[in-house]
């Protein structure tokens, strides 16, 4: 499997961490997108994380997913795409 794209994250102390970007999902008929990512794509069991991508002051920002509806859609997407 080809490697996933990587985004580096820098914490305030300057330490860099890599996110493996799985994909971006966009909610149909809504201007709402989610970033799906993982930290370790090689693990025996891969943990998948998701964040809402928001635009704030001209920048894109990753924020928490708090809507039940969003959780459901993302989970269903993962399930469908895993089959």
């Amino acid at each position: 499997m080809k490697d996933l794209e990587t985004i580096k994250i820098t914490d305030p102390s300057g330490k860099e961490i890599e996110i493996k970007v799985i994909t971006v999902l966009k909610k149909p008929n809504e201007d709402k997108s989610f970033l799906l990512y993982t930290f370790d794509a090689e693990a025996e069991n891969v943990d998948i994380y998701a964040s809402v991508i928001k635009e704030e002051n001209g920048s894109y920002v990753l924020d928490s997913i708090t809507e039940k509806d969003d959780w459901d859609i993302i989970q269903k997407a993962i399930k469908e795409l895993s089959e």
């Binding site: 693990a43 891969v46 943990d47 998948i48 994380y49 998701a50 997913i65 993962i78 895993s82």
Partner: peptide, 11 residues
Amino acid sequence: SKVGRIKNDSF
């Protein structure tokens, strides 16, 4: 915000 954990093969 972890939405799932799947086996590597499935991943």
